[in-house]
């Protein structure tokens, strides 16, 4: 698995979303000051613990042209809670402010080298990977967060500054891969 490295270019994809549309990464980037790609899912408690903060991040920077897309690549056969139908329900219940995409083939997760949910990849306007890792440093308690890594990365991109913490360890469940044939 070839994990993206800081400085790599945005791998393109086109995936269906829970809102009935399809989204292409390059088109989103062309409309963005920064693009946040989050590998996520429904069932993982780390995602559940963080998803309001992810939603907040998307809302907070939308007016400044930052776009966020979430991608669920989990095997829905083994984890039915991560099916596309359940994704639709989840996006409605949580009023996601971002497209929630389904990577049924898992090709996109493989192309990014994503391993966990949640795991963030943040690209600058040029499509260069500028941050990779966790949303922040405390899944359990938002009030105890010392380093809001993703927010700091977005702020740095918008200000055209260097990202201080460009890479952190993603913390969460492993992506649930389909059985190899």
């Amino acid at each position: 698995m070839a994990k993206l490295k800081i400085g790599d270019n945005l791998p393109n994809f086109t995936l269906p979303a829970t809102d009935g549309n399809s989204y292409e990464a390059q088109t989103l980037l062309d409309q963005s000051a920064a693009l946040i790609v989050v590998f996520t899912c429904n069932h993982c408690p780390y995602v559940v613990a963080w998803e309001d903060r992810i939603n907040h991040l998307a809302r907070r920077y939308a007016e400044q042209g930052v776009k966020l897309v979430a991608i669920n690549s989990n095997d829905a056969v083994k984890y039915p809670a991560d099916s596309f139908e359940k994704m639709i329900l989840r996006s409605q219940q949580k009023e996601f402010s971002f497209p929630y995409l389904h990577d049924a083939s898992q090709h996109v997760a493989h192309s990014y080298g994503a391993e966990r949910t949640p795991e963030l990849f943040i690209f600058d306007r040029a499509g260069t990977l500028t941050y990779h890792g966790a949303l922040d440093d405390n899944y359990d308690d938002e009030k105890a967060v010392k380093h809001p890594y993703a927010q700091q990365a977005v702020e740095a991109i918008l200000a055209q500054h260097e990202v201080v913490f460009a890479e952190t360890a993603p913390v969460g469940c492993t992506i649930k891969w389909k059985p190899t044939k």
Partner: peptide
């Protein structure tokens, strides 16, 4: 948790006193 129906290699969430779910 209500969404877990069979044994397996999964992570588990716990409801905190304020209703939030945490892996801890």
């Amino acid at each position: 948790p209500p969404d877990i129906s069979e044994p397996g290699l999964s992570c588990r969430g716990y409801q905190k006193a304020d209703g939030r779910i945490s892996p801890l």
